[in-house]
Amino acid sequence: LSIEDFTQAFGMTPAAFSALPRWKQQNLKKEKGLF
């Protein structure tokens, strides 16, 4: 994903996403259907 696509999909920047705990990242991916 481009940074723009990522931000649009997750509502945050890739840097903010990577700062989240691993379990939170997994849950967000599942919610968006990317996992």
Results as ranks from 00 to 15, higher is better:
L20T: 10
W23Y: 14
L1V: 01
Q25V: 00
A16E: 15
N27G: 07
K30P: 04
A9K: 15
L20S: 05
F10G: 09
T7Q: 06
A19K: 13
K29V: 11
Q8C: 08
K24M: 12
M12T: 01
K24Q: 14
A9C: 07
E31Q: 11
L34R: 12
L1F: 15
R22S: 15
T7S: 07
K24I: 09
K32F: 06
W23F: 08
K30G: 07
K32M: 10
A16D: 14
Q25W: 02
P14T: 03
S2V: 00
G33E: 13
G11R: 02
T13V: 01
Q25I: 02
K32G: 08
K24Y: 03
F17V: 07
Q26V: 12
P14Q: 09
S2E: 07
L28H: 06
P14W: 05
D5M: 00
L1E: 13
L20I: 06
D5T: 05
G11Y: 02
N27D: 08
R22I: 13
D5C: 00
S18R: 07
K32H: 12
A16H: 06
K30N: 14
A19P: 02
T13H: 07
K24C: 08
P21C: 00
F10N: 06
L34Q: 13
L34V: 09
K30D: 07
R22L: 15
F10K: 07
T7E: 11
F10S: 07
S2Q: 06
T7P: 05
Q25M: 01
A9M: 09
E4V: 04
T7L: 11
P14H: 03
Q25F: 00
T7Y: 14
K32W: 08
K30R: 12
E31D: 10
A9T: 11
E31A: 06
W23C: 08
S18I: 03
F10Y: 14
F6Q: 04
L34E: 14
A16W: 02
D5L: 01
P21Q: 02
Q26E: 15
T13F: 00
R22M: 14
K30I: 14
S18M: 13
L1T: 07
A9D: 10
Q25H: 00
D5S: 04
Q8D: 06
F17W: 10
W23G: 11
W23K: 06
R22Y: 10
A19D: 13
M12F: 05
T13E: 05
P21L: 02
Q8A: 10
L20M: 12
M12W: 01
D5G: 03
A19C: 08
A19W: 01
K29S: 10
R22A: 15
D5Y: 02
L34F: 06
K24H: 10
Q8F: 02
P21A: 04
F10C: 03
L34H: 06
G11Q: 02
T7R: 07
N27W: 11
F17I: 04
W23Q: 13
K24S: 09
L20K: 10
A19L: 12
Q8K: 15
A16G: 06
L28P: 00
A16L: 03
T13G: 05
T13D: 13
I3W: 07
Q8V: 11
G11A: 01
L28Y: 10
E31W: 04
E31K: 04
A15T: 12
E31G: 07
G11N: 06
L20Q: 06
A15I: 02
K29L: 11
P14D: 09
G33P: 07
K32I: 15
E31P: 01
M12G: 01
K32Q: 11
L20R: 03
E4H: 00
E4F: 04
S18N: 12
L34M: 14
I3Y: 13
L34G: 13
L1W: 09
K30W: 03
F17S: 09
D5E: 10
Q26G: 05
M12N: 03
T13A: 02
Q26F: 13
S2M: 05
A19V: 07
G33D: 15
K32D: 12
T13P: 04
G11D: 03
P21R: 00
R22P: 15
P14E: 14
Q26C: 09
E4W: 01
F10R: 03
G11P: 00
S18D: 13
F17Y: 10
F10D: 11
K32C: 12
M12C: 01
E31H: 15
Q26L: 08
A9I: 12
L34S: 14
Q26R: 08
F35Y: 14
F6T: 07
K24R: 08
L1N: 15
A19I: 04
F6S: 09
A9Y: 11
A15H: 04
K32Y: 13
L28A: 02
A15Y: 01
R22Q: 15
F17T: 10
F17C: 05
R22D: 15
F35P: 14
T13N: 11
E4T: 06
L28I: 11
N27P: 01
F10T: 07
E4D: 08
W23R: 08
Q8Y: 00
A9E: 14
P21I: 00
L34D: 09
P14S: 05
Q25L: 02
Q25Y: 01
W23M: 09
T13Q: 04
Q25A: 05
I3E: 14
G33W: 03
N27Q: 15
K30C: 10
K29P: 00
P14N: 05
P14I: 06
F6N: 06
G33K: 04
N27R: 13
G11W: 00
F10M: 10
P21H: 00
L20W: 02
P21W: 00
F35R: 11
I3V: 09
Q8N: 09
F35L: 13
L1R: 06
Q26H: 15
A16T: 11
Q8L: 07
G33H: 03
E31I: 15
A16K: 12
P14K: 09
T7H: 05
Q25R: 04
A16F: 06
K30T: 08
N27K: 14
A9P: 02
P14C: 05
A15V: 08
K29N: 02
K24A: 08
F10I: 13
A15K: 11
A15P: 02
S18Q: 07
Q26K: 11
D5K: 10
S2K: 06
P21Y: 00
Q25G: 01
G33S: 11
I3D: 09
T13M: 00
L28K: 02
E4R: 02
N27F: 14
S18F: 12
A19S: 11
K30L: 10
F17E: 14
R22K: 15
Q26P: 00
I3H: 12
S2P: 08
A15N: 09
T13I: 01
Q25E: 04
Q8P: 04
K30E: 12
K29W: 07
L34P: 12
Q8G: 03
E4I: 04
T7V: 11
S2R: 11
A9V: 12
L28C: 04
Q25P: 03
D5F: 04
D5R: 04
K24W: 03
S2L: 01
N27M: 14
G11E: 10
R22W: 14
R22C: 13
A16Y: 02
A16V: 05
L34Y: 08
K30V: 09
T7M: 08
S18L: 07
L1M: 15
N27V: 13
